[in-house]
Nucleic acid binder design. Structure first.
Lengths: 151, 151
DNA sequence: CCGGATCCCCAGAGATACTG
DNA sequence: CAGTATCTCTGGGGATCCGG
């Protein structure tokens, strides 16, 4: 779709340093390798949804949590989705699961070092969202009132 | 659910600086204010899904893109979802939409300064995912082979 | 033709009940 | 207690249509 020299021309015309960093993601653009794994779709996005972020936050805060404690803190999540997310996060190495064969059974979840590393990166987003939130909500209301007046 | 002194005790016991930063998010924990806006669920997560991130990436790279150019680059997205996402991103102030009443009609999308600010934060995740991707995939395969042997 | 909007279907989220 | 099984139903996503 794009020749290397075309890409380089685009990159050279950059107005923002942002664009240089993006070059490594061009693999996604090239339609000749569609079955390839997309870093955003297959690796990042499954752990940046609302439930996963909240799980990271509460595990980061309390260090160790049991299944039902997590279910209580991450308000509104269903047991099925929580189990799914925990299995996924364990699979990709973000957290470890410790089962104690007591009666009643006890299962504890804890972030790995790798999980903490990811949580640190998430803070860049979380901090920024907390700062920008009120401004965003204001814009949202403005946009919607204009939209409704147009009708 | 948690008294202030209990929360402070937890915070004081922190083993990671991560935990201190999380205190500001405790609003989500308190069940006495459920109808409040949750920063993660209502502000961050709608713009950190796979499609939105890819839209940010390609707009950051090309600066200005038309509807069908975006649709081509963000491979696999449907027109409906693209229109939905673009409207949402415009509503919250991440991008601006410019319509030219030509024949055929032309519509261009471009990130705002606010959108670029958010993209900068996203890079912390994107860079890290690109570095960690191969390791994650390896862990994923290990986990699944163990899981299948258990069956 | 371009940029959507509309209609429709099905995967996956979510509620409930149940089990080791 | 920590999940799974089952069912329901929302909303994501494809196909089609339509105004400009």
């Amino acid at each position: 779709m794009l020749a290397d020299n075309q890409i380089d021309t685009i990159i050279n015309n950059q107005h923002f340093t942002v664009q240089k960093k993006l070059k490594k993601l061009f693999g996604h653009i090239d339609p000749t390798n569609p079955p390839e794994i997309c870093p955003i779709r297959d690796i990042l996005s499954p752990v940046s949804d609302k439930w996963s972020i909240l799980i990271f936050i509460y595990l980061g805060l309390f260090k160790v949590l049991r299944f039902n404690e997590l279910k209580k803190y991450v308000r509104g999540i269903s047991a099925k989705i929580l189990a799914d997310r925990l299995k996924y996060l364990e699979q990709d190495g973000y957290l470890k699961r410790q089962m104690y064969a007591e009666v009643p059974i006890r299962v504890e979840y804890e972030l790995t070092d790798f999980g903490y590393e990811y949580l640190e990166k998430l803070f860049n987003l979380i901090d920024w969202i907390n700062l920008s939130m009120s401004e965003i909500i204001k814009k949202r209301h403005q946009f919607n009132s204009v939209f409704n007046n147009d009708k």
